[in-house]
Computed example of a mutant assay.
Amino acid sequence: MKGNCANEQKPKGEYNMSTFAIGHVLIKTNRLKQTASRYEELGFTVTYRVSPEKSHNAFIYFRDGSFLELFNPKPMNVADKLILALLRLLRPINPAMIKRYMHYIASKEGITDYAMDSVPVEQAEANLEGMKQAGARVGNKIKLSKKLPDGIKQTWWIAVFEDDTMPFLMSAYHPPIACLKHELAHRNGVRGIDCLVIDVPDLEAWILKYEPLGPRVNHSQQGKQCELFFEKQHKIILRKSDEYRLAEIHLLTSASLDEDLAIQPHESHGATLVLKQQPSCNFF
Results as ranks from 00 to 15, higher is better:
5 C>L: 14
7 N>C: 06
13 G>W: 08
16 N>G: 07
20 F>M: 09
21 A>N: 02
23 G>R: 09
26 L>I: 06
28 K>C: 10
35 T>Q: 04
39 Y>M: 10
42 L>E: 06
44 F>H: 02
53 E>G: 04
55 S>R: 01
59 F>D: 06
63 R>Q: 14
63 R>L: 07
72 N>Q: 14
73 P>Q: 15
76 M>T: 02
79 A>F: 12
79 A>Q: 07
81 K>V: 15
82 L>W: 12
83 I>E: 09
86 L>I: 10
87 L>Q: 02
88 R>A: 01
90 L>P: 05
91 R>Y: 05
94 N>L: 02
98 I>N: 05
98 I>M: 05
100 R>A: 13
101 Y>P: 12
102 M>L: 15
103 H>M: 06
105 I>N: 07
109 E>Q: 15
111 I>H: 08
111 I>C: 13
115 A>Y: 02
115 A>I: 07
121 V>M: 11
123 Q>T: 08
126 A>V: 15
129 E>N: 09
130 G>N: 10
131 M>S: 09
131 M>V: 14
132 K>R: 13
135 G>W: 12
136 A>Q: 06
143 K>W: 14
145 S>W: 13
151 G>E: 04
162 E>S: 01
164 D>W: 01
167 P>S: 11
168 F>L: 15
168 F>K: 04
169 L>V: 11
170 M>W: 00
172 A>S: 11
173 Y>D: 11
177 I>M: 14
178 A>Y: 00
180 L>D: 06
186 H>I: 04
186 H>N: 06
188 N>C: 05
189 G>I: 01
191 R>A: 12
195 C>Q: 00
198 I>G: 00
199 D>Y: 06
202 D>P: 03
204 E>R: 08
205 A>R: 08
208 L>V: 07
209 K>G: 01
212 P>V: 00
218 N>D: 11
222 Q>E: 14
229 F>T: 05
231 E>H: 00
236 I>E: 09
240 K>S: 09
241 S>K: 09
242 D>R: 12
242 D>K: 15
244 Y>F: 15
247 A>L: 10
249 I>V: 12
249 I>K: 02
250 H>N: 04
250 H>I: 02
250 H>T: 01
253 T>C: 07
254 S>Q: 09
255 A>D: 06
256 S>F: 03
256 S>A: 06
256 S>L: 09
261 L>R: 13
262 A>V: 12
266 H>C: 06
267 E>G: 01
267 E>D: 13
267 E>T: 05
269 H>L: 10
270 G>R: 08
279 P>V: 03
281 C>V: 13
281 C>W: 15
282 N>Q: 09
282 N>M: 11
283 F>P: 11
284 F>W: 07
284 F>P: 09
